[in-house]
């Protein structure tokens, strides 16, 4: 035991918690209107830009303490990304509310093209980045080896789980959460009972965008770099995570993310990183063949 295996677990856990945060956006939107929001990865990408912009702005105003920087960036990014989520829903999805199931899917693909190129045109094609905010690492001795935990990674894990906890609280115990759940269970009934379902759907898009914003800030901090293309791969991975955990289920999204992260990390660490994505997708296919509703999803009951 030289710490290598444990280190790979930690690597996978950080990666997975990030996947999980983005997966929440997919799972909530799917749960409520049954639509795969392909533009969600791009919303994350925009939030990464916003995080970098806000850091640059704060640095310009001479703010240097880490807590203040973090707080300012989080607030700024979350608010603006939330507005993005709201606006996108208004423009591209709401007019399609009552049409076929695939129409919003195509519209979402259009939106993701728009967002990618919008970011590229307005910010330039270059790679963007943020300076390293939290330097240094913690070294935990394990047997003959060690596990290296950067402070950034610890911060990410804590922030991701706090974010998840807050969201779970909102969905479980607040009025907004009850409205969301009611709309998810039966949209028509909910609207009969006086819930403005259109508004609830807007809220859900905003919540998804907010979680993507949180992920955007955290990922940008950890890896320090991104570009206008960053949303694509991570979007597909997060979507896979959402399905793996059972699409529509909040804890499922987090669990799916972590399983995906750890399996990728272990596979590329122990076997071969060339085929790690092949492995993750095969894992997904296997799980879905034997458990079609995903790990924590509710089984589909066909109604006549």
């Amino acid at each position: 035991m030289d710490g290598i295996f444990l280190q790979q677990l930690v690597n996978g856990l950080t990666l997975g918690s990030v996947y999980g945060l983005i997966a929440i956006g997919y799972t909530m939107v799917y749960g409520i209107i049954g639509m795969i929001n392909f533009a969600h990865g791009e919303v994350y990408m925009i939030s990464a830009y916003l995080a970098a912009i806000s850091l640059a702005l704060l640095a310009y105003f001479g703010i240097e303490s880490f807590p203040l920087l973090m707080l300012g960036t989080l607030l700024f990014t979350i608010v603006v990304t939330g507005v993005y989520g709201f606006t996108i829903e208004r423009i591209a999805y709401k007019p399609l509310r009552n049409s076929t199931r695939l129409a919003p899917l195509i519209s979402a693909i259009g939106i993701s093209l728009i967002l990618q190129n919008y970011a590229q045109i307005s910010q330039g094609a270059r790679q963007q980045g943020v300076p390293t905010l939290l330097e240094g690492a913690m070294r935990v001795e394990v047997g003959t080896g060690f596990v290296q935990l950067t402070y950034t990674k610890i911060f990410i894990l804590v922030a991701a789980f706090v974010g998840m906890g807050l969201l779970t609280y909102v969905i479980k115990y607040t009025k907004l959460g009850r409205m969301c759940r009611a709309t998810q269970q039966d949209r028509k009934m909910a609207s009969i009972l006086g819930i403005n379902t259109d508004r609830v759907i807007s809220y859900v898009f905003v919540i998804g965008a907010v979680m993507a914003a949180l992920a955007g800030v955290l990922i940008t901090m950890n890896y320090g770099t991104f570009d206008f293309y960053a949303g694509f791969i991570i979007g597909i991975k997060a979507f896979t995570a959402a399905v793996l955990g059972g699409i529509g289920s909040l804890p499922g999204a987090m669990l799916g993310g972590i399983i995906l992260g750890i399996s990728e990390s272990l596979f590329s660490g122990l076997i071969n990183s060339d085929y790690k994505d092949v492995f993750s997708f095969s894992l997904l296919v296997m799980i879905l063949i034997f458990r079609p509703q995903g790990l924590l999803g509710r089984p589909l009951v066909a109604k006549v």
Binding site: I236, F281, L288, I289, Q293
Partner: peptide, 28 residues
């Protein structure tokens, strides 16, 4: 054969996975 008993969107993600697997194998 194995995936057709799945419902709508689960089928979608499995086929997505299949497409990616083929591409990755061709690439690797």
């Amino acid at each position: 054969f194995p995936v057709l008993r799945m419902h709508g969107d689960y089928l979608a993600i499995v086929t997505l996975g299949f497409g990616e697997i083929i591409r990755l194998v061709l690439n690797n």
